[in-house]
């Protein structure tokens, strides 16, 4: 395992009375695709927002490239963010700008490049995601998969050291899912940087990940290479990976036995 880029130690985070992370440790390497998987509602998106410094943890620390994210001054945080790309579930494209302008946006904001340089850069980034031909479209004219691809082009516009994908496969048809899987893999190979994929689409994620973290109920359940995870002894892991209906996570929500319940109701009606 190569050098660590994101180092999480003792991370605890709660929202209201809901404990979302309980003393979580993670190491995400500088190169390769790291997948973070877990059931819905385990705070995977929250984890990305914590890494991006958009949320403050209750305790614990997150270091990105050796800098403790939550002790940085706003300006330093913004400097660091220029080297972090993030792909939101909805794409988060700016609706009043065209596809081209959306990709150009971070470049215009943070550099003083000439218009022709910007044009070349943007076209290259759009070409990498296969959407050079869609540069004049408005975000409203794009399909969900396409806006995610534009968003990817925008996330790599400033050649970041890492890119975070928030549920990139959710709600996609098989073809655009395949396109996204291939893109994440090929971008990571081409740019040789750190990709963090948060997802619960097991098959797609496992096919490209170099390392996998499984989280559930606020803690890391298991971590290792995809092969190790697939061959895991743990009952819970097997249920999650294979998508079984019953297992350590029971099919039935905890309740009194069925017969008792039925009888009580009947009695109540009679009385």
């Amino acid at each position: 395992m190569s050098e660590t880029l994101v180092k999480i130690r003792g991370l605890t985070f709660s929202r209201g009375n809901n404990l979302i992370f309980d003393n979580v440790d993670m190491d995400i390497p500088r190169k390769g695709i790291t997948a973070i998987m877990g059931p819905s509602g385990t705070g995977k998106t929250t984890l990305l927002k914590l890494i991006g410094g958009q949320l403050q943890p209750d305790s614990g620390s997150i270091e990105v490239d050796g800098q403790n994210i939550h002790q940085l001054k706003t300006r330093e945080l913004y400097e660091l963010r220029k080297r972090m790309g993030m792909l939101f579930q909805s794409g988060a494209l700016l609706t009043d700008l065209s596809v081209f302008e959306n990709v150009a946006y971070p470049i215009r904001e943070h550099t003083r490049l000439s218009e022709s340089m910007i044009r070349q850069l943007v076209l290259m980034k759009l070409n990498a995601v296969g959407l050079r031909g869609a540069r004049d479209l408005e975000p409203a004219e794009l399909s969900g998969g396409m806006s995610r691809r534009v968003s990817m082009a925008r996330a790599i516009a400033l050649d970041p050291m890492m890119i975070m994908y928030d549920e990139p496969f959710t709600g996609q048809d098989p073809i655009s899912m395949g396109v996204l899987v291939k893109l994440i893999k090929s971008l990571n190979d081409a740019l040789n940087f750190c990709s963090i994929v948060v997802s619960h689409d097991v098959r797609e994620t496992m096919s490209i990940a170099d390392y996998v973290y499984l989280i559930s109920a606020g803690t890391v359940v298991e971590h290792g290479t995809p092969e190790a995870i697939t061959n895991s002894e743990s009952e819970w892991t097997r249920q999650f990976i294979k998508g079984l209906a019953d297992g350590p996570v029971p099919f039935h929500v905890k309740a009194t036995p069925l017969l008792d319940d039925l009888l009580t109701t009947a009695e109540r009606k009679r009385g």
Partner: peptide, 18 residues
């Protein structure tokens, strides 16, 4: 509000734009 709902505001923050 719509920009917040569609994560555009978060997206800007992550692009280091306030």
């Amino acid at each position: 509000g719509l920009m917040k709902t569609t994560e555009q505001l978060s997206g800007m923050e992550m692009m280091a734009v306030n």
